[in-house]
Design a protein around this nucleic acid. Structure first.
Length: 563
DNA sequence: AGGTCATGAGTCC
DNA sequence: TGGACTCCCTGACC
């Protein structure tokens, strides 16, 4: 083909000149731009482009400084140092409503904004009475005081080569934590004997979505994977068997290959419940390792079932959530397509839905519409949630979906932990804290972060017995514990560069980052680089009492601390 | 050191 | 209905 004919098919190239007198920030840039402009002009002439091209939209090369989000001039979106400046033309990145940006969003200023606190209930029907009689022995009468540590220490391990997808504490060996990753590897780590770790790499061939302990033998675990199999692995030997493969004919095409996502066990009946990315639920008898009955469509056909949870008190009650924007309640004794007891509607994909850990009477869901929803009683009105708490946990590529998790130790069932997507400028570094939220009031109780952890922590689990938080951030796992000595003041510790866990400030500063010069930010980043402990694959690094720092407590203002 | 790729859901057409 | 395009991410691999 002759070059001339090819050229004729090119769309028109229009170069928009900067018409106003706005000055560019540096002379160098100006020169570069001018040069570029000239070159393009030359090209235009050489190529002989005119305005008579048909069928192709013109390519506009603009030399104006425009917003990368809306392509309009007059403002610029993106990170300015460690603070993200929103495009004012877009809805708020936090609450998704138009009219303001994230910086001025009322939900950012106070997480409890717009949340109606839980009411003291007096109305009781007979069903509720029976349910509570069943629960009574399990509920502690006296609520222990919630103590938030001033300082926490952190251990970090990196034995996964891909992002962490799930975490599970051992139900009886309290120092052991299991982790799964995107590659399908299963990690076993003793976080008290930090070098005691094992990685089993040959169980699954891709994403290990959920891990569940065998309720009859805590030496074995089940795994549900996107490779379409359920595994049963002996933790000591690493020997694994496949309980089920939902793709008996192997990989045919991406549109037919089934992946397993949600999984839970019904300990009373010895059943393993798993669900796939096409909306179906499978039931497996864990004693005979065989599928029971046929797959049942529990979510919209073709949509992923992201999570399953059996009620801790009445395990026949199943909660599912999925890509069809619904969470659903089921009675597994009468399970068939369309037979859900309730449908809990959401605006976006539901990443997780959990019953409360002790009474099983509350429901907590995390949805991609940046809202955590709470239903105070499964015996009450489930038509709409009791509370919606706006919290930044957007979905994004290459991130494990965020899941708000209950504190299994909290008898009042009001504490949840969830990682935060949106970053805050902490002393010149953009950090993504892990939030402790009172889901009865919407208040942010505490936030945990570390300047060395610049990635988000979408996976979090609170220990069933101890004051320990486990987080999966990218391919690393972090264990946070309160330090024994809490006597030192925050200010003293900040001076010493020691890690601190901060109580949430009552009122957040919505501005105040802007006074930082680029130079300050550069210095701060450089400082972090020098203290940063590089965690290579298969290495263990302990951050005890020396390296890490954190601030923000009491009167220390976010982003305002200067050394 | 810097570019490329992987990748999932929403939105627009 | 399906394809193209976009996104406050992250890390491995060239």
């Amino acid at each position: 083909m002759a070059p001339e004919t090819r050229r004729l098919k090119f769309p028109q190239v229009v170069i928009e000149r900067e018409s106003d007198t706005e000055e560019t920030s540096s002379e160098e840039e100006e020169v570069e731009e001018e040069e570029e402009e000239e070159t393009k002009d030359e090209e235009k002439q050489q190529v002989g482009l005119s305005g008579n091209n048909k069928g192709k939209a013109p390519i506009i090369i603009s030399l104006k400084k425009v917003c990368k989000v809306c392509k309009e001039a007059g403002h610029e979106a993106g990170f300015k140092g460690a603070t993200y400046i929103d495009c004012p033309m877009k809805p708020c990145f936090l609450c998704k409503l138009p009219g303001h940006t994230t910086i001025t969003c009322p939900h950012r200023v106070a997480t409890e904004y717009g949340v109606i606190p839980a009411a003291h209930k007096n109305t009781r029907n007979s069903l509720q009475f029976i349910f509570e009689r069943q629960l009574r022995p399990k509920i502690t009468k006296i609520k222990p005081k919630l103590v938030i540590p001033n300082h926490v220490s952190c251990a970090v391990i990196r034995y996964h080569s891909r992002r962490v997808t799930c975490l599970e504490f051992h139900p009886t060996k309290y120092n052991i934590i299991l982790s799964g990753d995107k590659k399908g590897q299963l990690g076993v780590w003793d976080f008290e004997q930090v070098y005691e770790k094992t990685v089993y790499g040959n169980i699954h061939s891709c994403i290990l979505n959920h891990i569940k302990f065998n309720p009859r033998n805590d030496g074995t675990v089940y795994g549900a994977s996107s490779d379409g199999t359920i595994s049963c692995t002996d933790l000591e030997t690493g020997l694994s068997s496949s309980l089920m493969n939902i793709n008996p004919n192997g990989f045919q095409s991406p549109t037919t290959f089934k992946m397993l996502y949600g999984m839970d066990v019904n300990p009373e009946k010895g059943l393993l419940l798993v669900a796939d990315n096409f909306g179906s639920l499978y039931t497996v008898d864990s004693r005979s390792n065989s599928q029971v009955g046929e797959a049942v469509l529990i979510h919209k056909k073709g949509r992923k079932v992201a999570g399953l949870h059996c009620n801790p008190v009445q395990p026949d009650l199943l909660l599912s959530c999925g890509n069809d924007h619904f969470a659903r309640l089921w009675d597994i004794r009468r399970l068939e397509a369309g037979s859900s007891l309730y449908q809990l509607s959401h605006n976006r994909v539901v990443n997780s839905a959990y019953f409360s850990p002790q009474s099983g009477s509350k429901i907590l869901t995390t949805s991609q519409d940046n809202r955590i929803r709470v239903w105070d009683s499964i015996l009450g009105n489930l038509d709409s949630p009791s509370r919606e708490i706006v919290h930044s946990h957007d979905f994004n590529r290459y991130l494990t979906p965020f899941r708000a998790e209950w504190d299994p130790k909290d008898p009042s069932e009001s504490l949840a932990v969830v990682g935060r997507y949106i970053s805050e400028n902490y002393n010149g570094i953009a950090l993504h804290p892990i939030d402790f939220i009172n889901i009865s009031t919407g208040q942010l109780i505490a936030e945990v972060m570390d300047p060395n952890i610049t990635t988000m922590s979408p996976v979090n689990k609170l220990h069933p017995q101890y004051d320990v938080l486990a987080s999966g951030s990218s391919s690393s796992i972090f264990i946070w514990k309160p330090e024994k000595d809490q006597s030192e003041s925050i200010e003293q510790r900040v001076k010493k560069n020691i890690l601190v866990c901060g109580k949430a400030e009552k009122k957040r500063k919505s501005k105040g980052d802007s006074d930082e010069s680029d130079d300050d930010i550069y210095k701060a980043k450089k400082n972090i680089k020098s203290t940063k402990t590089k965690t290579k694959s298969n290495s263990v690094v302990i951050k005890g009492k020396v390296v890490v720092k954190l601030c923000f407590y009491g009167n220390l203002k976010r982003g305002g601390y200067k050394r």
